[in-house]
Protein backbone atom coordinates (compact mmCIF):
# COMPACT_ATOMS: atom_id res chain seq x y z
CA UNK A 1 0.00 0.00 0.00
CA UNK A 2 1.37 3.37 -0.96
CA UNK A 3 0.78 6.25 1.34
CA UNK A 4 -1.10 9.33 0.29
CA UNK A 5 0.94 11.74 -1.81
CA UNK A 6 3.97 9.47 -1.58
CA UNK A 7 6.39 9.20 -4.51
CA UNK A 8 6.25 5.82 -6.11
CA UNK A 9 8.74 3.76 -8.03
CA UNK A 10 8.39 2.44 -11.56
CA UNK A 11 7.41 -1.05 -10.46
CA UNK A 12 4.61 0.19 -8.27
CA UNK A 13 3.41 2.55 -10.97
CA UNK A 14 3.30 -0.24 -13.56
CA UNK A 15 1.35 -2.40 -11.13
CA UNK A 16 -1.11 0.40 -10.47
CA UNK A 17 -1.54 1.17 -14.17
CA UNK A 18 -2.11 -2.53 -14.90
CA UNK A 19 -4.66 -2.59 -12.09
CA UNK A 20 -6.40 0.48 -13.48
CA UNK A 21 -6.51 -1.16 -16.89
CA UNK A 22 -8.21 -4.14 -15.26
CA UNK A 23 -10.56 -1.70 -13.51
CA UNK A 24 -9.28 -2.81 -10.12
CA UNK A 25 -10.84 -0.42 -7.67
CA UNK A 26 -8.03 -0.67 -5.10
CA UNK A 27 -5.45 0.25 -7.74
CA UNK A 28 -7.61 3.11 -8.91
CA UNK A 29 -7.84 4.40 -5.39
CA UNK A 30 -4.10 4.01 -4.82
CA UNK A 31 -3.21 5.97 -7.90
CA UNK A 32 -5.66 8.64 -6.83
CA UNK A 33 -4.11 8.80 -3.39
CA UNK A 34 -0.64 9.21 -4.83
CA UNK A 35 -1.38 11.88 -7.42
CA UNK A 36 -4.43 13.74 -6.16
CA UNK A 37 -2.60 16.22 -3.83
CA UNK A 38 -0.30 17.47 -6.61
CA UNK A 39 -3.13 17.54 -9.09
CA UNK A 40 -5.36 19.33 -6.62
CA UNK A 41 -2.73 22.05 -6.25
CA UNK A 42 -2.56 22.34 -10.02
CA UNK A 43 -6.34 22.54 -10.29
CA UNK A 44 -6.44 25.20 -7.61
CA UNK A 45 -4.22 27.40 -9.74
CA UNK A 46 -6.38 26.96 -12.81
CA UNK A 47 -9.69 27.59 -11.11
CA UNK A 48 -11.32 30.33 -9.19
CA UNK A 49 -12.00 28.37 -6.00
CA UNK A 50 -11.67 25.05 -4.27
CA UNK A 51 -15.05 23.76 -5.38
CA UNK A 52 -14.25 24.32 -9.02
CA UNK A 53 -10.81 22.82 -8.50
CA UNK A 54 -12.35 19.66 -7.09
CA UNK A 55 -14.71 19.43 -10.05
CA UNK A 56 -11.78 19.66 -12.42
CA UNK A 57 -9.86 17.14 -10.37
CA UNK A 58 -12.77 14.71 -10.46
CA UNK A 59 -13.20 15.10 -14.22
CA UNK A 60 -9.47 14.70 -14.72
CA UNK A 61 -9.19 11.48 -12.76
CA UNK A 62 -12.24 10.01 -14.45
CA UNK A 63 -10.76 10.94 -17.80
CA UNK A 64 -7.49 9.30 -16.78
CA UNK A 65 -9.22 6.04 -15.76
CA UNK A 66 -11.16 5.96 -19.02
CA UNK A 67 -8.14 6.51 -21.21
CA UNK A 68 -5.35 4.92 -19.23
CA UNK A 69 -4.75 2.44 -22.06
CA UNK A 70 -3.56 5.44 -24.09
CA UNK A 71 -0.68 6.12 -21.72
CA UNK A 72 2.58 5.20 -23.39
CA UNK A 73 5.74 5.03 -21.36
CA UNK A 74 7.35 7.79 -23.42
CA UNK A 75 7.02 10.37 -20.62
CA UNK A 76 6.22 10.41 -16.93
CA UNK A 77 2.82 9.35 -15.76
CA UNK A 78 2.55 12.51 -13.70
CA UNK A 79 3.29 14.67 -16.74
CA UNK A 80 0.58 12.83 -18.67
CA UNK A 81 -1.85 13.27 -15.79
CA UNK A 82 -1.03 16.98 -15.57
CA UNK A 83 -1.90 17.39 -19.23
CA UNK A 84 -5.22 15.71 -18.61
CA UNK A 85 -5.94 18.02 -15.70
CA UNK A 86 -4.99 21.12 -17.66
CA UNK A 87 -7.18 19.96 -20.55
CA UNK A 88 -10.08 19.47 -18.18
CA UNK A 89 -9.53 22.95 -16.77
CA UNK A 90 -9.43 24.37 -20.29
CA UNK A 91 -12.61 22.52 -21.24
CA UNK A 92 -14.32 23.95 -18.23
CA UNK A 93 -13.41 27.47 -19.26
CA UNK A 94 -14.30 26.85 -22.89
CA UNK A 95 -17.80 25.99 -21.80
CA UNK A 96 -18.15 29.39 -20.20
CA UNK A 97 -19.30 32.23 -22.40
CA UNK A 98 -17.02 34.83 -20.85
CA UNK A 99 -14.02 32.61 -21.06
CA UNK A 100 -11.58 35.12 -22.48
CA UNK A 101 -13.00 38.40 -21.43
CA UNK A 102 -10.36 41.02 -21.53
CA UNK A 103 -9.44 43.20 -18.61
CA UNK A 104 -8.59 46.79 -19.18
CA UNK A 105 -5.84 47.99 -16.98
CA UNK A 106 -4.90 51.57 -17.36
CA UNK A 107 -2.69 51.81 -14.38
CA UNK A 108 0.99 52.10 -15.08
CA UNK A 109 3.19 49.68 -13.31
CA UNK A 110 5.37 50.93 -10.60
CA UNK A 111 7.76 48.25 -9.57
CA UNK A 112 8.29 49.23 -6.04
CA UNK A 113 10.74 47.26 -3.96
CA UNK A 114 8.11 47.05 -1.26
CA UNK A 115 5.88 44.85 -3.45
CA UNK A 116 8.70 42.47 -4.10
CA UNK A 117 9.50 42.25 -0.46
CA UNK A 118 5.87 41.45 0.35
CA UNK A 119 5.73 38.82 -2.37
CA UNK A 120 8.77 37.12 -0.93
CA UNK A 121 7.03 36.78 2.37
CA UNK A 122 3.80 35.29 1.01
CA UNK A 123 2.89 31.69 1.71
CA UNK A 124 1.73 29.12 -0.90
CA UNK A 125 -1.86 29.46 0.17
CA UNK A 126 -1.80 33.20 -0.40
CA UNK A 127 -0.11 32.84 -3.73
CA UNK A 128 -2.79 30.45 -4.88
CA UNK A 129 -5.45 32.84 -3.70
CA UNK A 130 -3.79 35.60 -5.68
CA UNK A 131 -3.79 33.46 -8.80
CA UNK A 132 -7.41 32.53 -8.22
CA UNK A 133 -8.32 36.18 -8.04
CA UNK A 134 -7.20 36.65 -11.65
CA UNK A 135 -9.76 36.75 -14.44
CA UNK A 136 -10.05 33.33 -16.11
CA UNK A 137 -8.18 34.25 -19.28
CA UNK A 138 -5.35 35.87 -17.40
CA UNK A 139 -5.17 32.99 -14.95
CA UNK A 140 -4.92 30.43 -17.74
CA UNK A 141 -2.21 32.28 -19.62
CA UNK A 142 -0.28 32.97 -16.43
CA UNK A 143 -0.39 29.29 -15.44
CA UNK A 144 0.55 28.03 -18.85
CA UNK A 145 3.39 30.50 -19.21
CA UNK A 146 4.83 30.36 -15.71
CA UNK A 147 4.20 26.77 -14.62
CA UNK A 148 4.02 24.82 -17.85
CA UNK A 149 6.71 26.85 -19.53
CA UNK A 150 4.76 27.30 -22.77
CA UNK A 151 5.62 30.00 -25.30
CA UNK A 152 3.04 32.58 -26.29
CA UNK A 153 2.72 30.93 -29.69
CA UNK A 154 1.87 27.60 -28.02
CA UNK A 155 -0.53 29.23 -25.58
CA UNK A 156 -2.24 31.05 -28.44
CA UNK A 157 -2.64 27.76 -30.29
CA UNK A 158 -3.91 25.94 -27.23
CA UNK A 159 -6.43 28.59 -26.24
CA UNK A 160 -7.35 29.51 -29.83
CA UNK A 161 -6.41 33.13 -29.32
CA UNK A 162 -3.85 35.35 -30.97
CA UNK A 163 -0.31 35.55 -29.74
CA UNK A 164 -0.86 39.23 -28.93
CA UNK A 165 -3.83 38.39 -26.76
CA UNK A 166 -1.75 35.85 -24.90
CA UNK A 167 0.95 38.45 -24.22
CA UNK A 168 -1.65 40.97 -23.21
CA UNK A 169 -3.28 38.51 -20.81
CA UNK A 170 0.02 37.73 -19.19
CA UNK A 171 0.78 41.41 -18.78
CA UNK A 172 -2.66 41.97 -17.27
CA UNK A 173 -2.19 39.01 -14.94
CA UNK A 174 0.98 40.46 -13.54
CA UNK A 175 -0.56 43.90 -13.18
CA UNK A 176 -3.58 42.54 -11.35
CA UNK A 177 -1.36 40.49 -9.07
CA UNK A 178 0.58 43.61 -8.20
CA UNK A 179 -2.58 45.58 -7.59
CA UNK A 180 -3.97 42.87 -5.38
CA UNK A 181 -0.80 42.73 -3.32
CA UNK A 182 -0.75 46.48 -2.95
CA UNK A 183 -4.39 46.53 -2.00
CA UNK A 184 -4.27 43.68 0.45
CA UNK A 185 -1.06 44.66 2.10
CA UNK A 186 -1.77 48.35 1.97
CA UNK A 187 1.36 49.32 0.14
CA UNK A 188 1.51 52.84 -1.12
CA UNK A 189 2.08 53.58 -4.80
Amino acid sequence: MILKGQNIGNIDLKRLIAGCLAKDRSCQKEIYSVYSPAMMALCMRYTKDRQEAEEVLQDGFLQMYRSIQQFKNTGTFEGWLRKIMINCALQKYRRKSDRFSTVTISEELNYLPSVLSVLNQLQEKELIRLIQSLPPACRLVFNLYVFEGLKHREIAQLLEISEGTSKSNLFDARTILKKQIRKEFKIAK
Binding site: A38, M40, A41, R50, A53, I128, V146
Partner: peptide, 29 residues
Protein backbone atom coordinates in the same frame (compact mmCIF):
# COMPACT_ATOMS: atom_id res chain seq x y z
CA UNK B 1 11.16 37.59 -10.03
CA UNK B 2 7.38 37.27 -9.82
CA UNK B 3 7.35 34.35 -12.24
CA UNK B 4 10.16 32.57 -10.48
CA UNK B 5 8.64 33.16 -7.09
CA UNK B 6 5.30 31.68 -8.12
CA UNK B 7 7.01 28.82 -9.91
CA UNK B 8 9.30 27.93 -7.04
CA UNK B 9 6.65 28.25 -4.40
CA UNK B 10 3.89 26.38 -6.20
CA UNK B 11 5.68 23.99 -8.57
CA UNK B 12 5.71 21.17 -6.05
CA UNK B 13 2.92 22.42 -3.94
CA UNK B 14 0.37 19.79 -2.92
CA UNK B 15 -3.13 20.24 -1.74
CA UNK B 16 -5.35 17.60 -0.29
CA UNK B 17 -8.70 17.33 -2.10
CA UNK B 18 -11.90 16.81 -0.18
CA UNK B 19 -13.06 13.30 0.64
CA UNK B 20 -16.16 13.63 -1.49
CA UNK B 21 -14.04 13.91 -4.64
CA UNK B 22 -13.03 10.28 -4.43
CA UNK B 23 -16.56 9.31 -3.44
CA UNK B 24 -17.88 11.01 -6.55
CA UNK B 25 -15.23 9.39 -8.69
CA UNK B 26 -16.14 5.99 -7.24
CA UNK B 27 -19.81 6.56 -7.99
CA UNK B 28 -19.04 7.51 -11.56
CA UNK B 29 -16.77 4.51 -11.97
Amino acid sequence: HVDNLFREMLQFHKKEPGRRVWENIEKEL
